[in-house]
Write a protein that binds this DNA or RNA. Structure first.
Lengths: 210, 210
DNA sequence: ATCAAGTCTGTAACTTGTTCTACCTTAGCG
DNA sequence: CGCTAAGGTAGAACAAGTTACAGACTTGAT
């Protein structure tokens, strides 16, 4: 994790936006989140977003080349909020596994508050094809950063990174099953706690005690 | 594996189909798989499927109420093939974790042979909303059955079931990252092997040896 | 054989994501 | 000031999923 990864909103070679442009972008993202929060994925209709943001349809497409791009960007935005919020009150548990599970459940409860928004963002994320890879990757790196923060692992071993990857997989997939009504919140909690055991399994400190 | 779980294609209250109807259904599923194999999710266009199956558009929609339903049903179909194939040559490893990892990697290689088909099916699966829950659930149960088969767990403990759930999460999500080009096959293998460690962690036989 | 109910067919219409076009506005620059 | 290029706007047009509908075709019971 080099200093480079300052979670820049946009990938490298983006020309700097003027103030008016930055404001437009913000209005679009806000409109997107607002519509998503009301009616989920389907309610985020490009014409409506454009209108709500006070922008022409063509402009919307200039800023975000597809609905999926838009929603993934919305997710980046929300995740960034979440990350800063979480940093203010770090998890209290003693063991890394505990802390990660706690953090993820906290994030989960945040999503619960706006289930429709969560639905829209997660559906977009998993539906994204190759053309959205860079953006999806950014989201993934943000998530990884959140988990590593919770673990308190400064120099994660490759093994730990694998564990984190698996935790991310579980996190996404569990979210989906919950959003589509196929799993209860309790079930999600169990799954998260189960997968977090992998952390103990791969943490150097604990290797000596098993 | 109770006698109940003989993976009925359609949910309970479906009136039995006549022979011609069964044939139509089959033609539709085959057309769907054929088109998906050629061009992935986008190539499965309802008008084309209808034409290729020699059926009117309205009929297609009577059999499968949406494109997502159709593709999820296609996945059920393919998974059933896979399950019977796998049963013929069970995995050889000694430890349950090994066997599960082997089985999943075998399934994975099967999907690799038709990456576009895999793409279409998995995208549909994760994009499915509540209206497709029953069908998605069927797919999930099939997957669970395959994993439990590989574990050789006749009477899985709740703990083991949690582990299986997490493995399924990882399997789906890893598949997605591979399909969208964000992870290599080697990466997927590592993730699968990592998550399979949970099996050793929860297997009663191994509890005594650790 | 006939009739009613349920299926299919062909086709058009509607919705929403996406693209295109023709025309304005703005910002920088000589 | 006046020019130019990039960025914006409004609105039409297009594509594919979905729905609607009028007219055949099947099927099963009488």
């Amino acid at each position: 994790m080099t200093a480079e990864s300052r979670a820049d909103h946009r990938p490298s070679a983006a020309p700097p936006l003027t103030e008016r442009q930055e404001a437009r972008r913000r209005r679009i993202l806000d409109a997107s989140a607002r519509l998503a929060a009301r009616g989920g994925f389907d309610a985020v209709q490009m014409r409506e977003v454009a209108e709500a943001a006070g922008v022409a349809l063509g402009t919307l497409y200039r800023y975000f080349p597809s609905k999926i791009h838009l929603l993934v960007a919305t997710m980046q935005d929300q995740l960034q909020h979440l990350h800063t919020t979480l940093r203010k009150r770090p998890p209290a548990g003693a063991a890394p596994a505990k802390r990660v599970a706690e953090t993820l459940m906290r994030a989960f409860r945040a999503l619960q508050r706006e289930p429709q928004l969560a639905d829209a963002m997660v559906r977009a994320l998993t539906f994204a094809d190759r053309s959205v890879s860079p953006e999806v990757d950014t989201v993934s790196r943000l998530t990884t950063a959140i988990i590593l923060d919770a673990m308190g692992a400064e120099q994660p071993t490759p093994e730990q990174l694998s564990a984190v990857r698996v935790i991310e997989h579980t996190w996404h997939s569990a979210l989906i099953t919950w959003l589509s009504g196929r799993a209860s919140i309790a079930q999600v909690k169990i799954d998260i706690e189960t997968v977090c055991r992998l952390i103990d399994l791969t943490s150097p400190e604990h290797a000596t005690t098993r």
